[in-house]
Simulated scan of single mutants.
Amino acid sequence: MVRPREFDKEEVLQKATRVFWEHGFSASSTDLLLKEMSIGRQTLYNTFGDKRQLYLEVLRSYQEQALSGHLERLNTPESPLQGIRQLLLGLAPADDSIRALGCFGVGSVGEFGTSDPVLMAARASIQAVLQRRIESRVREGQNLGELDASLSAKEVAAFIQTAMVGLQISARAGADVRGMHAIANFTADRLKAV
Protein backbone atom coordinates (compact mmCIF):
# COMPACT_ATOMS: atom_id res chain seq x y z
CA MET A 1 0.00 0.00 0.00
CA VAL A 2 1.38 3.40 -1.00
CA ARG A 3 1.59 5.91 1.81
CA PRO A 4 0.36 9.42 1.00
CA ARG A 5 3.11 12.00 0.70
CA GLU A 6 3.50 14.20 3.77
CA PHE A 7 3.23 17.95 3.28
CA ASP A 8 3.26 21.11 5.34
CA LYS A 9 -0.34 22.33 5.32
CA GLU A 10 0.56 25.93 6.23
CA GLU A 11 3.14 26.13 3.45
CA VAL A 12 0.62 24.74 0.96
CA LEU A 13 -1.99 27.27 2.13
CA GLN A 14 0.50 30.12 1.67
CA LYS A 15 1.11 28.98 -1.90
CA ALA A 16 -2.64 28.78 -2.55
CA THR A 17 -3.07 32.25 -1.07
CA ARG A 18 -0.53 33.67 -3.49
CA VAL A 19 -2.28 32.05 -6.46
CA PHE A 20 -5.75 33.30 -5.49
CA TRP A 21 -4.39 36.72 -4.49
CA GLU A 22 -2.62 37.18 -7.81
CA HIS A 23 -5.23 35.64 -10.15
CA GLY A 24 -8.55 35.76 -8.29
CA PHE A 25 -10.89 32.82 -7.83
CA SER A 26 -12.10 32.35 -11.41
CA ALA A 27 -8.69 32.56 -13.09
CA SER A 28 -7.08 30.20 -10.56
CA SER A 29 -7.68 26.84 -12.20
CA THR A 30 -7.46 23.69 -10.14
CA ASP A 31 -4.51 22.61 -12.29
CA LEU A 32 -2.65 25.87 -11.53
CA LEU A 33 -3.36 25.48 -7.82
CA LEU A 34 -2.15 21.87 -7.79
CA LYS A 35 1.03 22.83 -9.64
CA GLU A 36 1.84 25.76 -7.35
CA MET A 37 0.85 23.91 -4.16
CA SER A 38 2.86 20.81 -5.24
CA ILE A 39 0.08 18.43 -4.23
CA GLY A 40 -2.13 15.96 -6.08
CA ARG A 41 -5.80 16.38 -6.91
CA GLN A 42 -6.92 13.78 -4.37
CA THR A 43 -4.87 15.44 -1.63
CA LEU A 44 -6.56 18.75 -2.43
CA TYR A 45 -10.00 17.19 -2.14
CA ASN A 46 -9.19 15.12 0.95
CA THR A 47 -7.52 18.00 2.81
CA PHE A 48 -9.37 21.11 1.71
CA GLY A 49 -12.55 19.96 0.00
CA ASP A 50 -13.00 21.68 -3.33
CA LYS A 51 -11.52 24.82 -4.86
CA ARG A 52 -14.19 27.03 -3.27
CA GLN A 53 -13.55 25.66 0.21
CA LEU A 54 -9.82 26.20 -0.26
CA TYR A 55 -10.49 29.79 -1.41
CA LEU A 56 -12.68 30.48 1.61
CA GLU A 57 -10.05 29.08 3.96
CA VAL A 58 -7.16 31.10 2.53
CA LEU A 59 -9.25 34.27 2.28
CA ARG A 60 -10.38 33.94 5.91
CA SER A 61 -6.78 33.44 7.04
CA TYR A 62 -5.59 36.39 4.92
CA GLN A 63 -8.32 38.66 6.29
CA GLU A 64 -7.55 37.71 9.90
CA GLN A 65 -3.85 38.45 9.39
CA ALA A 66 -4.62 41.72 7.61
CA LEU A 67 -6.99 42.78 10.39
CA SER A 68 -4.35 41.96 13.00
CA GLY A 69 -1.81 44.14 11.17
CA HIS A 70 -4.31 46.98 10.77
CA LEU A 71 -5.18 46.92 14.46
CA GLU A 72 -1.53 46.79 15.52
CA ARG A 73 -0.67 49.87 13.44
CA LEU A 74 -3.79 51.68 14.62
CA ASN A 75 -3.32 50.86 18.32
CA THR A 76 0.46 51.03 18.81
CA PRO A 77 1.07 54.80 18.73
CA GLU A 78 -0.03 56.65 21.83
CA SER A 79 -1.41 59.40 19.61
CA PRO A 80 -4.73 58.43 17.96
CA LEU A 81 -3.90 60.62 14.95
CA GLN A 82 -0.56 58.83 14.54
CA GLY A 83 -2.36 55.50 14.87
CA ILE A 84 -4.68 56.43 12.01
CA ARG A 85 -1.73 57.68 9.98
CA GLN A 86 0.22 54.44 10.60
CA LEU A 87 -2.85 52.40 9.65
CA LEU A 88 -2.95 54.14 6.27
CA LEU A 89 0.82 54.25 5.68
CA GLY A 90 1.05 50.52 6.35
CA LEU A 91 -1.00 49.80 3.23
CA ALA A 92 2.04 50.61 1.06
CA PRO A 93 4.54 47.76 1.43
CA ALA A 94 8.06 48.63 0.27
CA ASP A 95 8.26 45.32 -1.64
CA ASP A 96 7.04 46.14 -5.17
CA SER A 97 5.89 42.57 -5.85
CA ILE A 98 3.67 42.50 -2.75
CA ARG A 99 2.37 46.04 -3.19
CA ALA A 100 1.41 45.31 -6.82
CA LEU A 101 -0.97 42.60 -5.62
CA GLY A 102 -3.06 45.13 -3.71
CA CYS A 103 -5.35 43.55 -1.13
CA PHE A 104 -6.66 40.01 -1.52
CA GLY A 105 -9.83 40.96 0.39
CA VAL A 106 -10.50 43.98 -1.82
CA GLY A 107 -9.82 41.76 -4.84
CA SER A 108 -12.52 39.34 -3.67
CA VAL A 109 -14.97 42.25 -3.46
CA GLY A 110 -14.05 43.23 -7.01
CA GLU A 111 -14.59 39.69 -8.22
CA PHE A 112 -17.72 38.72 -6.30
CA GLY A 113 -19.34 42.01 -5.22
CA THR A 114 -22.47 41.16 -3.26
CA SER A 115 -23.20 37.90 -5.11
CA ASP A 116 -21.76 35.56 -2.46
CA PRO A 117 -23.47 35.68 0.98
CA VAL A 118 -20.67 33.71 2.69
CA LEU A 119 -18.01 36.15 1.50
CA MET A 120 -20.24 39.13 2.36
CA ALA A 121 -20.74 37.88 5.92
CA ALA A 122 -17.01 37.30 6.44
CA ARG A 123 -16.17 40.73 5.02
CA ALA A 124 -18.84 42.43 7.17
CA SER A 125 -17.47 40.79 10.30
CA ILE A 126 -13.90 41.99 9.63
CA GLN A 127 -15.06 45.49 8.65
CA ALA A 128 -17.17 45.81 11.80
CA VAL A 129 -14.22 45.07 14.07
CA LEU A 130 -12.02 47.62 12.31
CA GLN A 131 -14.85 50.18 12.14
CA ARG A 132 -15.42 50.01 15.92
CA ARG A 133 -11.74 50.37 16.72
CA ILE A 134 -11.24 53.31 14.36
CA GLU A 135 -14.31 55.01 15.87
CA SER A 136 -12.84 54.49 19.32
CA ARG A 137 -9.50 56.00 18.33
CA VAL A 138 -11.26 58.94 16.69
CA ARG A 139 -13.23 59.68 19.87
CA GLU A 140 -10.01 59.33 21.88
CA GLY A 141 -8.29 61.80 19.54
CA GLN A 142 -11.20 64.21 19.80
CA ASN A 143 -11.07 64.07 23.61
CA LEU A 144 -7.34 64.81 23.48
CA GLY A 145 -7.88 67.74 21.12
CA GLU A 146 -5.90 66.09 18.27
CA LEU A 147 -8.85 65.43 15.97
CA ASP A 148 -11.64 67.74 14.85
CA ALA A 149 -14.38 67.39 17.47
CA SER A 150 -17.09 68.44 15.00
CA LEU A 151 -16.63 65.24 12.97
CA SER A 152 -18.77 62.14 13.50
CA ALA A 153 -16.55 59.27 14.67
CA LYS A 154 -18.72 56.83 12.72
CA GLU A 155 -18.41 58.84 9.50
CA VAL A 156 -14.66 59.31 9.97
CA ALA A 157 -14.22 55.55 10.43
CA ALA A 158 -16.23 54.87 7.26
CA PHE A 159 -14.16 57.51 5.42
CA ILE A 160 -10.90 55.93 6.59
CA GLN A 161 -12.04 52.47 5.49
CA THR A 162 -13.01 53.87 2.10
CA ALA A 163 -9.60 55.56 1.83
CA MET A 164 -7.99 52.21 2.69
CA VAL A 165 -9.82 50.50 -0.17
CA GLY A 166 -8.77 53.30 -2.53
CA LEU A 167 -5.14 52.97 -1.48
CA GLN A 168 -5.24 49.21 -1.96
CA ILE A 169 -6.76 49.52 -5.43
CA SER A 170 -4.11 52.15 -6.28
CA ALA A 171 -1.44 49.68 -5.22
CA ARG A 172 -2.89 47.05 -7.56
CA ALA A 173 -2.93 49.68 -10.32
CA GLY A 174 0.80 50.33 -9.86
CA ALA A 175 0.98 53.21 -7.38
CA ASP A 176 4.40 53.72 -5.81
CA VAL A 177 5.14 53.99 -2.10
CA ARG A 178 5.80 57.72 -2.21
CA GLY A 179 2.48 58.48 -3.85
CA MET A 180 0.57 56.17 -1.51
CA HIS A 181 2.24 57.74 1.51
CA ALA A 182 1.30 61.21 0.26
CA ILE A 183 -2.36 60.17 0.04
CA ALA A 184 -2.22 58.49 3.46
CA ASN A 185 -0.75 61.62 5.04
CA PHE A 186 -3.23 63.88 3.27
CA THR A 187 -6.11 61.74 4.55
CA ALA A 188 -4.86 61.75 8.15
CA ASP A 189 -4.15 65.49 8.07
CA ARG A 190 -7.78 66.23 7.11
CA LEU A 191 -8.85 64.94 10.54
CA LYS A 192 -6.70 67.30 12.64
CA ALA A 193 -8.31 69.73 15.03
CA VAL A 194 -8.16 73.27 13.66
Score class of each variant (00 low, 15 high):
39 I>G: 10
32 L>P: 12
71 L>Q: 06
90 G>L: 05
86 Q>P: 15
44 L>D: 06
47 T>H: 08
80 P>W: 10
73 R>P: 14
91 L>W: 03
58 V>D: 03
62 Y>L: 01
85 R>H: 14
37 M>S: 08
80 P>T: 14
70 H>G: 07
84 I>R: 10
107 G>M: 10
84 I>Q: 12
102 G>W: 03
41 R>E: 15
74 L>W: 09
57 E>H: 00
68 S>I: 00
77 P>S: 13
48 F>S: 03
48 F>K: 02
86 Q>D: 14
76 T>A: 13
89 L>G: 08
67 L>T: 10
53 Q>I: 00
102 G>P: 09
93 P>Q: 02
78 E>S: 12
43 T>A: 05
46 N>Y: 04
95 D>V: 00
41 R>Y: 13
31 D>S: 15
64 E>T: 06
108 S>G: 14
65 Q>V: 01
62 Y>D: 01
94 A>F: 07
68 S>K: 13
43 T>S: 10
67 L>F: 02
76 T>Y: 08
50 D>H: 00
41 R>N: 08
29 S>Q: 04
60 R>N: 11
101 L>E: 14
72 E>M: 04
84 I>F: 09
60 R>Y: 00
32 L>E: 11
36 E>H: 09
93 P>G: 02
103 C>Q: 12
100 A>Y: 07
98 I>N: 04
102 G>H: 04
53 Q>K: 04
77 P>G: 14
94 A>T: 06
40 G>W: 01
106 V>W: 09
77 P>K: 12
68 S>N: 12
57 E>T: 07
53 Q>S: 14
79 S>N: 13
100 A>E: 08
107 G>V: 03
103 C>G: 11
73 R>F: 11
36 E>N: 08
88 L>C: 08
68 S>W: 02
53 Q>W: 03
66 A>G: 10
32 L>M: 07
73 R>L: 13
76 T>K: 13
89 L>Q: 10
45 Y>C: 04
52 R>K: 11
